[in-house]
Design a binder for these strands. Sequence first.
DNA 1: CCTGCTATTCAGCATTGCTATGTACTGGTA
DNA 2: TACCAGTACATAGCAATGCTGAATAGCAGG
Lengths: 109, 109
Amino acid sequence: MGKQATEMLKGTLEGIVLAILADRPAYGYEITAWLREQGFSDIAEGTIYALLVRIEQRGLVDVEKVPSEKGPPRKVYSLNTQGREYLEEFWRTWSFLAERLEQLRKGGE
Amino acid sequence: MGKQATEMLKGTLEGIVLAILADRPAYGYEITAWLREQGFSDIAEGTIYALLVRIEQRGLVDVEKVPSEKGPPRKVYSLNTQGREYLEEFWRTWSFLAERLEQLRKGGE
DNA sequence: CCTGCTATTCAGCATTGCTATGTACTGGTA
DNA sequence: TACCAGTACATAGCAATGCTGAATAGCAGG
């Protein structure tokens, strides 16, 4: 991914993580690894942890500490009701943006 | 548009403006007005002007000062070759992001 | 003269992602 | 024992971007 991606991820990455958590509870290390598999090759671990702290402080997720056999305890996040509402709002904003951009792309051919 | 839009626009707004300029030369005031018509209701004028300064400094656009009958002279921007290449790169990054997000949206139903 | 519309600019702020580093727990291996 | 890799989380400082609010300037009409 290019350098443009860094700025484009701002605001979007949060929605991506919320969407992941809407599907299943997960912890930071796991999310980072999954994103990298999906092609988000250079997403920094620190970025994900900081993001998780933010959405927790906003009350969008519930947290549970679960012991791990292979290292320090995991902080498993799951999306709560407020988080689901926020995610729906994210999808609305995303749709709006995606529609305008598709129109612009068509217009420029 | 909600508050999420502000962060989501980061990085995307630049592509949007470049896409507009790929279609036709335009000046700041005009671009702001057009975006507002398209539903980007709360895009600040200052944001567009600052963005135009940035893409000019990066050499993505050519500028021409054109007198106006109704006010101060306009700075008309047009996309140059480098700008078109940069825009193509933008579309590639955008496509990547849009595909992942559509997959996530489907998965979460 | 004053108001409103056109048109651009700029200083200061908030948010977000990245870099770099540090901490901590477990298991394997020399 | 000592060391290292893999797992797992946290944080301080930086860069980039969009927003707020205000200022500047030209032109036309009441």
